[in-house]
């Protein structure tokens, strides 16, 4: 049984290295081609500049401008095509084996993301989610806990106002509960959120839940449908673990507990899990960053002790 931990060096040297070298060759070849077209465009650009200064005859300017921009454009297109060619290979040949090395029952859908319905159900979005974007949907199992996460963007309204961009994680919770509890960053949440949740019908009789941990209270605002059940979910040890996880992620993390599942929203603007074009792909540190992201998002299972199932 895999638990999300493993020796990175073994993964890198024995499983990924050969594939990375092959991909790196393809990347280099794409870049070389792009650079070649760029350099071909340079003499035309020089002629273009010379003609524009000395003899700005439209036909001559056009004749020299056309190849300049054609080769520059082709250079850019080559870069784009290299990226388009490398992305699925990188995800299938590098990220998927990485996930399979770390976890059991891995399902990786690079072009999928969390659904609109799931985002809405999580209660973590400040406005109604009308459409979503994103990629890199992962579903796997860590011990007894099934976990899903993906890079997701949520949009509101006809003008597609972005209300969230980052990682959404959802995992089976280790206690059964009937009501809903939302734990939001205190700094960016007002009491108005409670009224909105009640008014929209997403929560029933939601109240602010005051908890006894002063550090937790300082960091989070808890809104729950039941004072007792919210405390049943948020045991003192879980509150401490949530604080530790929030500090580890170092972002304004939100949590919710709905229908026996835990939802976590971590706002991140970086586009993760993508190959890079202008730097070596086979760089160990670059691969480690991807490895660490996977570990960080799935560490929630270990960090919140979701595999302890003495209540179910």
């Amino acid at each position: 049984m895999k638990n999300g931990s493993g020796d990175f060096d073994v993964l890198f040297n024995k499983i990924l290295y050969d594939k990375l070298i092959a991909l790196e060759e393809k990347r280099k070849s794409g870049i070389r081609e792009s650079i070649r077209y760029f350099f071909i465009s340079v003499p035309f650009a020089a002629i273009l500049i010379y003609l524009m200064v000395k003899n700005p005859e439209p036909i001559l300017v056009f004749l020299s401008a056309f190849p300049t921009f054609a080769f520059l454009g082709y250079s850019a297109i080559t870069i784009r095509q290299t990226r388009i060619m490398l992305t699925p290979k990188f995800k299938k040949e590098i990220l998927l084996p990485m996930l399979q090395y770390l976890f059991d029952d891995v399902e990786y859908l690079p072009r999928q993301r969390m659904s609109k319905a799931l985002m809405q159900r999580s209660l973590l979005m400040s406005k109604t989610v009308d459409s979503t974007g994103g990629d890199d949907f992962v579903r796997c199992r860590i011990g007894q806990t099934s976990i899903m996460f993906s890079e997701t963007e949520a949009y509101h309204g006809s003008k597609a106002e972005m209300i969230f961009s980052g990682i959404i994680i959802t995992a089976g919770f280790n206690k059964s509960f009937m009501t809903k509890t939302v734990v939001l960053p205190e700094k960016s949440t007002t009491r108005w959120r409670k009224f909105k949740l009640n008014f929209s019908g997403q929560m029933k009789n939601a109240e602010i839940v005051k908890l006894e941990d002063p550090v937790f209270e300082k960091e989070f605002m808890v809104i729950g449908e039941s004072q007792v059940e919210s405390r049943y979910i948020l045991s003192p040890s879980l509150m401490q673990r949530m604080l530790d996880y929030k500090n580890k992620v170092n972002r304004q993390t939100s949590f919710s507990f709905v229908e026996n599942r835990l939802y976590v929203a971590i706002p991140i603007l970086t586009n993760m899990f993508e190959p890079r074009i202008f730097e070596p792909l086979s760089d160990k540190e670059f691969i480690r960053i991807n490895y660490d992201y996977f570990r960080l998002f799935t560490d929630i299972v270990e960090d919140l002790d979701l595999n302890t199932r003495i209540w179910q």
């Binding site: 206690k175 059964s176 006894e212 007792v228 059940e229 405390r231 049943y232 045991s235 209540w311 179910q312």
Partner: peptide
């Protein structure tokens, strides 16, 4: 589970 709920009620 009940033990934990009792503890939650006390809190």
């Amino acid at each position: 589970s009940t033990e934990e709920q009792i503890s939650a009620s006390r809190r």
